[in-house]
Design a protein around this nucleic acid. Sequence first.
DNA 1: TAGATTGTTAATCGATTAACAATC
DNA 2: TAGATTGTTAATCGATTAACAATC
Lengths: 233, 233
Amino acid sequence: MTTSDSKPRKTATGKRGSEGSEIAAALGGERLSLGVAARLSRYLQVLTQAKKMDKQTISSQELARFTHVNPTQIRRDLSGFGKFGKRGVGYNIDFLIEQIRSILHTAGKYNIALFGAGHLGKAIAGSEVFADHGFEIKAVFDSDEKKIGSKAGNVVVQSADELKQTVLEEDILVGVIAVPARAAQGVAEMLVEAGVTIIFNYSDALLEVPQEVTVHTSSPAVDLLYALYFYLA
Amino acid sequence: MTTSDSKPRKTATGKRGSEGSEIAAALGGERLSLGVAARLSRYLQVLTQAKKMDKQTISSQELARFTHVNPTQIRRDLSGFGKFGKRGVGYNIDFLIEQIRSILHTAGKYNIALFGAGHLGKAIAGSEVFADHGFEIKAVFDSDEKKIGSKAGNVVVQSADELKQTVLEEDILVGVIAVPARAAQGVAEMLVEAGVTIIFNYSDALLEVPQEVTVHTSSPAVDLLYALYFYLA
DNA sequence: TAGATTGTTAATCGATTAACAATC
DNA sequence: TAGATTGTTAATCGATTAACAATC
């Protein structure tokens, strides 16, 4: 799992996280464990790709092959939420995508502001990795005047001055940081100030943000180390 | 994580993985669990950044803040391998980096071939995320003749024809795919044919490779979904 | 029907965490 | 010393998986 983690202790009340399950119960929602949420996200990715390849159904075994998750576990993960499969056949891909999206509460569309229009920013803006999962890059920003006005993906690069207003107008929830590590903290602060509550950090800088903001740092090298461990072991 | 996984069942003998712990015991090596390996990699990343910021020591609590791992668990993870900390003080950063590297068997240098010299490839070649963790991008390839001869990071982009020879000469272990999804399978096959055994896939294509090759697919959108779940929950 | 694959049980194993003595 | 933080225990909780009946 680009091994990943989020704040596991965020609660609606802001209370200490020690008695998490009680709070979750009090809120009436069964809280997914970190592992289940991570795995469901992975299933979703494979399903999305399988759909692109015009597959109609998929078995737990096939899903296992691409996710490296045990097939029994996949069936168990899914069966906790309903009977989504057909015995002897497998899972209908379209249906399963819908179900997992609703389990993850991500059936909707979420808007992204991307900060950084260098090579990385342009690669992100031009790719479909986010779009495939219901995210839309609504705006791209850069601090470099020379880049302002140029195109990144489908949008025109804006000045950082316009960040706050755009976040508000476009109902942007997520900020993606695609700038060099030395500039990342500054950008994070601008994003927070503009009202973004989730930050996806492509630099390897350690970001200091207020408690209520969730940061996820992309770590390809960490992922690679992890893969390497299993290769070498 | 960017949620991540590798082949958990790779064994030196190639036997079925069902009795993994027995095999591990037979090999004399205590096999790290997936969770521990993933977390150690994350600690390493934070330590590497902290070192850059000229910190000398770090406490389990500080590590927890940046990794979102429980501080007790961090201490427990580490104490399984030795007494690396000083009570009342914390962990010496340089020393801990060394220790974790040796636990993960990644103290050495590993060489990378990067395929794709578009925006993404150039971003990767120009960044230090890999270098910071002991990986070196030895060569960059592209199928587009117009890109051959241009610079990506510190190296000159080569033709795919030279892939096999370069992998051999430069002792390359890892292939990084930074091409559009539709071209990824073809590149994967070239890399495998050239002798690469670990593939890091930046496209979201589902790659079919021989069993002995380990594929890790980067999934920022999956990571983001996962972060979003905890934000919305 | 025969074959395939799900859904679910039951048992095990490992991860997680609070708590606290040890000690820097 | 006083304060901080590790290392470790003990208890709990959840993840994992083999196995198989159900059923498409």
